[in-house]
């Protein structure tokens, strides 16, 4: 919908994000083949090890929370979007994220937990969301940068999940990736328009890239294989077919896909070590500041407190509404009129 109206014509076939690659198409094909080969997906009624169940609940809940918290940095720009078309697209995008959150909470519920239980854990700080949303959106270009870099990185992580061993999660990912691909295109298109705009608009674009590049690379998580591995759940998740690639593999794929797009936008990425390595056939990039990653993850980020307090306030201020809906449904049931939607 938003694509194909920017960029040089001859690049029309170049994938802009991971959902436009062969891998996504293959994942789709394999998923449907998987339906025939019934053993290839674990479904809610199948027996599964408790650790597998708990790992999935934690991962799917964290993913759902990220969608819900991720509505905030962009939602704050709905009122300020610079044109009515941009406002409509942004409202639809934030709404999509709410929808993704609902899908994912539903997928988690197939594992025997309740959405309200998961939300309580989010509100109490017992479950996490993607740390990228602890950074603020300071300009309109940040809305574009979130689409381009944050959604781009998220798709890179999520496309392999379309082949995840747990059926409901894999199916949710197929739809989520499709919509995220639109989101990533609209982000790139915002930035492409800025790149063709006034001097102030180009400066806004460069500033956003400077602030979002490194946090986007951190989204793949710390190294989880080889000598640099810092522990975590990767080995077990790979054995269970929940995770397909290491964090570093996904990060490298993201860098390789994104650097040429930055060049097209005419911006400089904030990494003096960034260069094409002919021998490896990949872009080399400089060291990531993992101290910053851990600091923000542990609460020392510009928006950690704000994100949770906004979410908790909405939840608490809405309690009387949810209670009323339950009470009313109870009254209708008592009168024999059945529940309302």
């Amino acid at each position: 919908m938003y694509g194909n109206d920017f960029g040089p014509r001859d690049d029309a076939t170049t994938p802009l994000n991971a959902a436009e690659t062969e891998e996504y198409s293959t994942a789709l094909a394999e998923y449907f083949d998987g339906l025939i080969d019934a053993d290839s997906r674990i479904e809610p009624r199948d027996a599964m090890p408790d650790a597998y169940r708990q790992t999935l609940i934690r991962q799917i809940a964290q993913h759902a929370h990220s969608e819900i918290i991720g509505m905030q940095p962009e939602g704050s720009w709905i009122g300020r979007a610079p044109s009515l078309r941009r406002k409509a697209i942004l409202m639809a995008k934030v709404q999509d994220e709410a929808g993704h959150g609902l899908y994912l909470y539903s997928a988690a519920e197939t594992l025997g937990v309740d959405r309200s239980e998961l939300l309580d854990k989010l509100h109490a700080g017992k479950q996490k969301y993607s740390s990228i949303f602890n950074y603020p959106t300071l300009t309109w270009a940040d809305v574009g940068a979130i689409g381009w870099l944050v959604d781009g990185a998220a798709i890179m992580n999520q496309v392999p999940l379309c082949r995840c061993s747990y059926g409901p999660y894999a199916r949710a990912m197929i739809r989520v990736c499709k919509e995220e691909s639109f989101h990533q295109r609209q982000g790139f298109e915002i930035l492409w328009t800025l790149s063709k705009g006034t001097e102030e608009q180009r400066a806004m674009l460069q500033d956003a890239a400077d602030r979002w590049w490194w946090p986007a690379l951190m989204m793949f998580g710390p190294p989880d294989t080889g000598e640099a591995a810092t522990g975590g759940h990767t080995a077990q998740s790979m054995a269970w077919g929940i995770k397909r690639f290491s964090n570093d593999d996904l990060r490298q794929k993201f860098v390789d896909m994104t650097v040429p797009q930055a060049i097209k936008l005419g911006i400089t990425l904030p990494d003096p070590d960034l260069r094409w390595d002919e021998e490896r056939g990949h872009w080399d990039f400089g060291p990531i500041d993992w101290d910053e990653f851990w600091r923000v993850l542990k609460g020392d980020g510009p928006c950690n407190a704000q994100r949770i307090s906004t979410r908790v306030a909405a939840h608490e201020e809405g309690a009387w509404v949810r209670e009323a809906a339950v009470a009313y449904a109870g009254k209708l049931a008592a009168r024999g009129e059945g529940a309302v939607a």
Partner: peptide, 29 residues
Amino acid sequence: LGEWLTHAPQIEEDMALGNVGLDLLGQAR
């Protein structure tokens, strides 16, 4: 109505109020 997104009593209502806002924005345009 755009101000309600992320502040609604439940996620379904974030979506619903967003929907109403989007319809109205379309009419306005």
